[in-house]
Design a protein around this nucleic acid. Structure first.
Lengths: 109, 109
DNA sequence: CAGTATCCAACGCGATACTG
DNA sequence: CAGTATCGCGTTGGATACTG
């Protein structure tokens, strides 16, 4: 296996290349929130979200906080490393809104 | 299927989420170049590269120029839309170099 | 609520071989 | 050089059901 030009970027791409990852981070950029909140904000199944969250936690991008209240509350938030991705997400958001056309957007109300 | 918060970003993520896509664009950011050049710069197989290039061409991100010289020369370059992704790539590059550690980088010379 | 387990279909992707 | 065709396996990922 030949190595590409820059292994770090290569690893970085693989991180955010996983489906939903960027959307999850984008969602988390609006503040810490609970599992079910993210789940309902995105068209993602619980299993996948659980997977992603765990991966992101292991990468040190997401922090999982457990509040042992009576109904246990668990909140996910971005770490510094995760927060640092804001620029990437923003850029992509800008680019998307500028260049992506929603021709296949089923706009049925 | 419930729709996420922002369909455009969603589509944007899916575009760049495909493996190698970002790396290819990154490579192309350094200027127009030929197929074999990209192929040897990245650890990607010809088939995949061909696929990606075609997809990116269809998305209007990459331009394919054919120079009918004696040995036909074909050069790939970024369109405006592709060039506009520079910010995203740059941000990701910065983030990667700052936050990604290469512990699993087999640094054998 | 916050997940985990299982099943299964679809896709991604790499290697290789082949074409013009 | 610049691809395309075929093959086959491993991974993804969605739906569903279940647990604490």
């Amino acid at each position: 296996m030949k190595s590409g030009c820059c292994p770090k970027l290569e690893k970085g791409t693989q991180l955010i290349s996983k489906r939903w990852t960027i959307l999850i981070i984008h969602q988390l950029l609006s503040g810490p929130q609970r599992f079910c909140n993210i789940e309902s904000a995105l068209p993602i199944s619980g299993k996948l979200l659980s997977e992603r969250l765990k991966e992101l936690e292991q990468e040190g991008i997401v922090h999982r906080a457990v509040y042992p209240e009576t109904p246990v509350r668990i909140e996910y938030s971005l770490t510094d490393k995760g927060q640092a991705l804001e620029g990437v997400v923003k850029e992509l958001e800008d680019w998307s809104s500028e260049w992506i056309s929603l021709d296949n957007c089923e706009g049925k109300s």
